[in-house]
Each structure stands twice: as structure tokens, then as C-alpha cells.
Nucleic acid binder design. Structure first.
Lengths: 239, 239
DNA sequence: TCAATATTAAATCTCGAGATTTATACAAGC
DNA sequence: GCTTGTATAAATCTCGAGATTTAATATTGA
């Protein structure tokens, strides 16, 4: 396999409409914290910034409501969804519930094609983590993409579209917390060991251990946030 | 308590914007099968039918995408979400997963106010089921409202907003299946016994039995649909 | 000085017309 | 006869301006 340094992940489908393009850009900016939690999203200002019509931007905002990244309040416009420790704890625990069940089903019903794709995703992730260990910070963004791809590959064989749908939303949410909390501090080294363990037990069809390790893997991010300064969320959500 | 025949359920908040009004009407029509699964939703036609502007109707459609009652395909307009036996099975099993977990947490953390509200909701539901047993068909619609209210009251003390959010979406989905399948055939009598058992075990804080009974209660609707003619879904989704 | 009201400004919501894209029908060619 | 290509028609997507609602400011009275 030609896995060079610039290996690409499967294309995420080009946006064919202006609404989708604005939606993608806005989503990215919200997840990356360009628009902080609680910020008022005024259509009049944003339509210039994103070079698009007013109605078009409104539709993009409505699509973001679907992802729960934006909240719309009747006749009082839109806001970036606020954040809180309680919310992140909720997101994390619900993720554990859904993702472990998805992995269980995936292991039970996954075929060889699923295993092959999982091996490939893990290999890509490992490469990125290897570079990260070598202090190649430029790989951080690529690591995030591949980490997500790995987690999705794990549960790809889960036949429940609904579980995968909800998992997708929650993962997106937790990604926003990770970026904003700027505990995007260097990814700890032992995280690769965790991924390795999840990968091994999953391929061995050991559902019990795999889900157990996955649980702790997800919950670990929760502990990290709980060690943040206590006024962190109130400060971010203010105004 | 003044529980007369015309007892009302807590008001569902009046829509203050045209978009919300159109959204509510459209949602209702889709759930009730006025717009069958797979039907193309042409903005030009619907804007007259719902007496609203084109852009306004588009926004209402986007809001329905959030509920997964409508699917939007890039540059090719909107459609009513299709149905299938596999989808209903998925919805039902995911509902069991979420609703049992929610009930577990609700029992663990519910206070007296929660218990009081649950008693009230169960009482209202019992009244409706009593009338239904007397062949008073006019109560069917009110029963559906109260049944939903009862299920929500069960998990009202669950602290997870996300689980409740997802549960809300799934309940809405299964309600559409129930109506469309017109196995809105007379509600079987022993359903009250099931509700009674769920209610009793929940109030007794017996989480194990309560969740077990709730599981079977939800799964029972799945068996009913599986006995439908095999071409039912293909016929409905056609075109 | 504080509370309540009236006035002003801003932002949202709403609408219909124009520009692009997609789907359909028909004819020509292999 | 079937496929390919073109032309027509329909529907969607996009935009900016006008009507309503909400928020902010200034004024008046106690």
C-alpha cells in the first residue's frame, strides 16, 4: 500500500450548494472556537463575512441546529450553543453508552471487509501517532481526522443507523470541547497504547474487554476536563 | 385535583413565528401520513397549501430534517423520509437502549416532585385507557398524547439532556410508524396492565424489573409490525 | 436616585423574482 | 431496437428589500 506522508483520508464529498458550503465553514469555525460558545450569531454581519445572502446564511444556521452546535430562540435570533462541565459529562457518558453498544454489535456482525478497513484505519492512526511522538506538531490536525476515522471504523459494522447517527453528533460535540478547552495540549503518549488495546481486543472478537477498554478510553477525556480551572466554563459561556 | 373529562395536558408552547407554525403543521401531516413516506416535497406546491412564502417553507423543511422526518438531497429538493421494517426495528431497539438507561437513571435520582408528576401522568393515562375500554373511540387521540406524556414522565428525572433529546426523536419516529401502519387498530386491552406494571415497579424503585418490563413493552410494538403483510413497506416507500 | 414610559435603533423574519441546476421528452445515430 | 445527445420544461437555489418584532436609549415623574 502506498502510504506516504501525504496519505489522504476518503474525501468528505464536495458541497454542491452555497448553503452547504456556508454550513461547512460555519461548523468548522464553531468547533474550532472562532465563534465562542454563547456568542450571538447576527445574520446581517455573518452574511458579509461568509459572502452569502441573508436567507442562505439563515438556512446554514438551521442546519447547525441539527448538530446542536447552534441554538435558535424563536424570534430572538441564533446563538452558538453554550458549554458547561455538566454538558460535557453528559456528552461523554452518553457517548460511552452508544459507542460501546455499537462496538458490541460491530464485533458480533462485522465481516472481513470491516476487519480490513479497521486494520487500515488503525495503521493510518498509528503512523500519525508515531510522528506525533517525534514531536512533529504539524501532524496534529491529521491525527484528529484519523482518530475520528478509527473510531468510526470500529463501529462501522454496527447495523444500527440511528446509533451511528447519534454517535456522530456526540463525537462532533466532544471535539468542540477538546478544541476550545485548548487541552489540545500535547496528546499523551499512552493514548497509542489504548488504541492498540482497543484494536487488538476488537480484532480478537473479545467484545467484553474491547468495550471495557473503550469505555475507559472515552471517560479519560472527562477526567482531563474536570481538572480545568473551575471558572473555565462560566468564563467561556459568559455574556 | 380537577380531573374532568376535558382535562388538558400542559400547553406545548404557541409558535411565535411563521416558520414554526408551518413546521408544526408539516410535522403533524407527515406523522399522520398525509404526506406518505418517500413523497417529494415540492416547495412551489406546498407554499400555497400552507399559505406561506417559499423561503419560509424551505426553513420549515430544514427543521424537519433535524427530526429525520424529511431528507434533503443537495440540489435535488426534499422528500419525506422513507420507511422500512429494518428502520423500524432499528428505531425500536435503539429506543429500548436509551429509554431503559434513562429510566434507570430516573429511578436512581428522581425526587418526590418527579414521583408526584409521574403519578399524575399515570392517572391521566389510566382514565383515557378506561374510556378506551368502554369503546369510546373519540379518546384515541387524547390517549396518544397521554401515553407520550407518561413515557416522558418516567424518564423526566434522568439528568441526561442528550438521552432525553434522542429519545424524543425516536419516539416521534415510532409514532409515525404506528399511525401509517394503521395498526392503529384498537389498542389491545392488556396494554394497561403493562403500564400498571411499569408504574408500580418504578415507584417501588425496582430498576431491574422496571426496565425489563419497559423493554418488553416497547419491543411488543415491533412484533406487531413484523406481522404486517410483507409487501407493506415496499408498497409505501415505492416511487 | 430609582423606576417606568416613550422613543429610537437594530435585528430578525418574511416575501417574491431572477439565476442555476436537474429532470423529462424527443429526435438522431449506431 | 437501444443508446446517445439535444432541447424543452420544471424545480430548486439564491438574493435583496420591506414589514415586524425585539433590544437599547433617552426622557419624565416620583
Amino acid at each position: 500500500m502506498n502510504d506516504t506522508a501525504t496519505l489522504q483520508t476518503p474525501a468528505p464529498a464536495e458541497p454542491k450548494t452555497l448553503v452547504e458550503a456556508a454550513y461547512n465553514r460555519l461548523r468548522r469555525d464553531i468547533i474550532e472556537g472562532v465563534h465562542p460558545p454563547g456568542e450571538k450569531l447576527r445574520v446581517e454581519h455573518l452574511k458579509d463575512q461568509y459572502e452569502v445572502g441573508a436567507g442562505t446564511l439563515r438556512e446554514a444556521l438551521l442546519m447547525l441546529v441539527t448538530d446542536a452546535l447552534v441554538v435558535g430562540q424563536g424570534q430572538r435570533g441564533f446563538r452558538v450553543a453554550p458549554i458547561s462541565l455538566a454538558d460535557f459529562e453528559d456528552i461523554t457518558r452518553t457517548r460511552v453508552l452508544l459507542e460501546t453498544e455499537a462496538l458490541r454489535q460491530s464485533i458480533a456482525r462485522g465481516d472481513e471487509a470491516w476487519e480490513a478497513a479497521l486494520v487500515a484505519a488503525f495503521h493510518r492512526l498509528s503512523r500519525a501517532e508515531q510522528k506525533l511522538a517525534e514531536h512533529d506538531v504539524s501532524t496534529t490536525e491529521e491525527w484528529e481526522v484519523r482518530n475520528r476515522a478509527f473510531h468510526e471504523a470500529l463501529i462501522a459494522a454496527c447495523p444500527s443507523r440511528w446509533i451511528r447517527h447519534f454517535q456522530h453528533i456526540l463525537y462532533q460535540q466532544s471535539e468542540r470541547y477538546r478544541r476550545i478547552s485548548l487541552f489540545r495540549q500535547p496528546i499523551p503518549r499512552d493514548i497509542h497504547a489504548e488504541h492498540q488495546a482497543i484494536f487488538d481486543t476488537t480484532l480478537a472478537h473479545d467484545a467484553t474487554r474491547a468495550t471495557s477498554i473503550l469505555s475507559e478510553h472515552i471517560l479519560r477525556t472527562l477526567d482531563a476536563v474536570k481538572r480545568m480551572p473551575s471558572d473555565f466554563f462560566t468564563a467561556k459561556t459568559a455574556r
